[in-house]
Amino acid sequence: MWKIFKYSFYDMIRNRWMFIYMAFFLLLTLALLFLSNDFTKVIISLTNIILVLTPLIGILFGTMYFYSSKEFIELLMAQPLSRKSIFTGMYLGLASSFSLSLILGISIPLLFYGLFNAANFSVYLVLCSMSVVLSVVFSLIAFIIALRFENKIKGFGVAIFTWLFFAIIYDGIFLLLLLLFKDYPLENLSIGLTVFNPIDLARILILLKLDISTMMGYTGAVLQKFLGSGMGSIFIITILTFWIILPFMRMLHLAKNKDF
């Protein structure tokens, strides 16, 4: 497994798109730092962009990578390797190179801007870990989609829709439900609904860390009120762990039962 990881990682970090991805975040962070000298503001702007962009790029690039590696997977499958080690290795190669270019992109400019100041650093760490979690979750979803749909066009369609659903449509439905049932107590419903959207979870965790209640939205406020920032964070981290483990198991299950 580690050997496959090694080679797919090598292949990925030499991919032009990984450089473009890194360069984009590098320029973005630099621009934000120039525009506003406030570290917190920069982190908030970055959060908003990362929350939308990493899932999109993760899911699209993951699907694309899987489809273009189809023959290579067949080559590996003719070797004395288990399916589990092939897919785990390839997936880790993709997710880690992806996370690496993202982290490098935002970290290099921030390094020159008092990153290691104690208060700033923990916020930065939360932002980085959440962008890694989102990359990991959405490239897993990408693998699941690509394993499930043999037809590339269909696969891309489902990938884009999945992103649209989690990034935009879900919030719309959420708001609508809150409006419809506004006469009832909504705490449990809103926490329950957030659990099913990794993007929301990541957003709330970052904002809990930043402690800006006005931006947290209803669920964030509910979480903070009932669980406190600390317990709220632990709750979210636990749920996000499930968001990684369950899709990963689903991915291996699909890979084990697929014809190549």
Partner: peptide, 23 residues
């Protein structure tokens, strides 16, 4: 296999070494 298609950004030497490494 019928169609040869390898990771595009690796050289043939690296692919050969990879398979040797795997087997």
């Amino acid at each position: 296999p019928q169609i040869a298609h390898f990771p595009e950004n690796l050289t043939s030497r690296e692919i050969i070494n990879m398979i040797i490494d795997l087997r």
